[in-house]
Amino acid sequence: MFGFHYRLERSAIGLVAFIVLVASIGGLIEIAPLFTIDETVEKAEDMRVYTPLEVAGRNIYIREGCYACHSQMIRTLRDEVDRYGPYSLAVESSYDHPQLWGSKRTGPDLARLGNKYSDDWHVTHLNNPRDLVPQSVMPAYRWLLRDQLRTDDLGDHLRALRAVGVPYSDDQIANATRDAYGQANPDSPEASGVAERYGADTNIRAFDGNQGPLTDMDALVAYLQVLGNLTQVAHTTQQAEVE
Rank of each mutant, 00 (worst) to 15 (best):
A184W: 11
L132W: 06
Y168F: 10
L149N: 10
L110K: 07
A206P: 06
S103A: 12
G114V: 06
L34R: 07
L126K: 07
I60R: 13
G107R: 03
A195S: 07
E241D: 04
L149W: 13
I173N: 01
F2V: 05
D201M: 03
D216L: 08
F35V: 12
I37R: 12
P134E: 15
T215S: 08
A17T: 15
Y61E: 11
R205S: 11
G209E: 04
D171E: 03
Q239P: 02
L126T: 01
M1E: 07
Y6C: 13
A68E: 10
A56P: 05
T215Q: 01
A160T: 06
A200G: 00
R78S: 04
L158A: 06
Y198R: 01
Q172D: 05
N127H: 12
I19H: 09
Q232M: 08
P129S: 10
L100H: 00
S103G: 08
Q239F: 14
A68M: 06
S188D: 07
I29Y: 10
Y6S: 06
W143V: 06
R78P: 02
V16T: 14
H5E: 15
D187F: 07
A174R: 14
L77M: 09
R146N: 06
A240I: 10
T236Q: 12
A140G: 11
T40G: 00
D147Y: 05
L158I: 01
L77E: 08
F4L: 12
R146K: 09
E190F: 15
